[in-house]
């Protein structure tokens, strides 16, 4: 309808589109280049350079890198840590938000401020004592320590967000449950949690991806090869002298694939969720 005003549109509109498309190409360029060169042989790379099309799919670089770092193991570690953290942090957030949003406990404003501060504190200001305590407790270089720490860090944000959501929870439903004789514990699990499911699933996905993407604490806590996560394994090998051009490219591709896969699988939830955090 709007286009009726200027049939065919002003010539400028194609220029705007072209500029935006060029920018999109620039943004996607590294993804394309990495993929292109991850499936080339080192000989092809040195003769044809990074822009030439591969003459077939050469998987040796990827396979060799995969075996050398035992990448399946890293995937499993990342998956186990992120999955456990996501679920545990949501449970913790729900318990807190139940007390704050629905129970309206005294001093809830200060409790929220506490969680907000806990969430914004840089990990650098916690890391050495955590490292020291973990060593004392025999939990250094164990996934358990990382799981506990990230559960707490993610729950700080989850509590903050979920308290606002549960603060809006319809009172009539709660009163009806109380009339039916449901105690608080039952009300939480039978009524509040099922009704809040959409928000909770957004949180699970976010916690999973955020934990997957973490680098600093896993770098310090998970030093043995058997415990490393995907970003740590790739990060510490970056620039390694043993890696040639195509193998470096293969390693980058192995980091990209799971991240992009999560994005595609959870796209709808994510685009909805990114804005949940922003609008509060």
């Amino acid at each position: 309808m709007r286009t009726l005003r200027a049939p065919g549109g002003p010539p400028g509109r194609w220029a705007v589109l072209a500029a935006l498309v060029v920018l999109a190409v620039v943004m996607l360029f590294p993804f394309v280049i990495v993929t292109l060169n991850a499936i080339k042989s080192p000989a092809e790379y040195s003769s044809g350079g990074p822009l030439s099309l591969p003459q077939g799919v050469y998987l040796d670089g990827i396979v060799e890198f995969w075996q050398r770092v035992d990448f399946g193991r890293k995937l499993w570690n990342s998956f186990l840590i992120s999955g456990t953290v996501a679920l545990a942090a949501v449970v913790l957030s729900v318990l807190n938000a139940y007390a704050i949003g629905i129970g309206r406990v005294r001093g809830r404003l200060w409790i929220l401020v506490f969680f907000l501060v806990a969430n914004t504190l840089p990990q650098e200001a916690l890391v050495y004592p955590l490292y020291y305590l973990a060593k004392q407790a025999g939990l250094y270089d164990s996934t358990l320590a990382v799981i506990v720490i990230f559960t707490v860090i993610q729950a700080a944000f989850g509590t903050y967000l979920l308290s606002a959501v549960l603060g809006q929870f319809p009172r009539e439903i709660l009163e009806a449950a109380a009339l039916d004789g449901a105690g608080r514990w039952r009300t939480l699990w039978r009524i509040v949690v099922p009704i809040s499911r959409p928000t909770l699933s957004v949180l699970v996905i976010f916690f999973f991806i955020w934990t997957w993407n973490e680098f600093f604490l896993p770098l310090i806590f998970l030093i043995s090869n058997d415990n490393q996560t995907v970003p740590v394994a790739l990060g510490v090998l970056q620039g390694d002298k043993m890696m040639d051009a195509t193998m470096s490219s293969a390693s980058a591709l192995l980091g990209i694939v799971p991240a992009v896969a999560f994005f595609l699988i959870f796209q709808r939830t994510l685009t909805r969720g990114i804005t949940v955090g922003a609008v509060k």
Partner: peptide
């Protein structure tokens, strides 16, 4: 397209550019 880099772990973004 503009959002895609954001889905990467930031360390992996570093690996990509370290290579590039």
């Amino acid at each position: 397209a503009y959002y895609l880099p954001q889905v990467l772990p930031v360390a992996v973004a570093g690996v990509v550019w370290g290579w590039m």
